[in-house]
Amino acid sequence: MYTQGLNQAVEEGGPEDAELLARFQAKIDREEKIEPNDWMPEAYRQTLIRQISQHAHSEIVGMLPEGNWLTRAPSLRRKAILLAKVQDEGGHGLYLYAAAETLGISRAEMVERLLEGRARYSSIFNYPTITWADIGAVGWLVDGAAIMNQIPLCRCSYGPYARAMIRICKEESFHQRQGYEAISRLAEGTAAQKRMAQDALDRWWWPSLMMFGPSDAESPHTARSMRWKIKRFTNDELRQKFVDATVPQARLIGLEPPDPELRYDEESGHWRFGEIDWSEFNEVLAGNGPCNRERMAARRKAHAEGAWVREAATAHARKQRRRTAMAAAAE
């Protein structure tokens, strides 16, 4: 899964040592990784904290729409696949929180920012999973879009983030495939199943395209993130790549993306698509999507109800250390 955090970079801070800055940039230009204790401009650190933590939050919140079908999967095979997949999202959130922690922020602080509404997560998870077909669509489209974004992040200039992304990409390689398999099965099934599949594509198509973030013209921080090699391709480049890959996949199984302007441009070899309705994107971003409130309520509830469990384990560990110390002293 993926967060569209790439575009909200932090403003440059105060004046920083020009020589350090030049050396830092030279290192990045040589494709050397920046590691946790290396000197880095404050804006680089803050941009990464924001981006990685948003990415982590997206994985965790992203467990909810798919988790919605864990108890209703239509076969035991599908149930096992979905369980493994949703669990993977949790693992990916964990790897990403750990990568962000190397920048000097605690997981508790990141989680608090999320629960207080001060941190974002990918808007795509504010859409509902209404039918089983949505599970296929999420895997195929949402994970498909995510992979487009995540593969370049494996070469991100920040070492811990790049390493986390390598592991994540490796693990996610089955996510899109299982989704496409699930929706293919519907597309070749009964009339009711087919209807479900097309309906899911109708609802998830545009939000998936929006996952790549605003168009380059509206994305003021792209240039700096590219210079820092936190970002390797622009939003529009990745979006086009996604459309080019996905349209033939849809047609292959007899589904049609909900875009009357969709046409193949022989000359460029690209699929041309219609205008994206950014007002919808902005509404969801502003908290007015179909499930924003439910998602946050679910996270807050899990966090609040887990508090006594976390405290119990801490208290027991402390008592055990004390007992061990006393036993050692008594000898």
Binding site: Q87, D88, G91, L94, Y95, A98, E101, R107, A164, R167, R310, A313, T314, H316, A317, Q320
Partner: peptide
Amino acid sequence: CGSLHAADPEMALARARDVYTR
């Protein structure tokens, strides 16, 4: 291969198994 949070070393070992050797 990574890191995780746990209340004590035993728990860390078990969760490392659960998280990193799936």
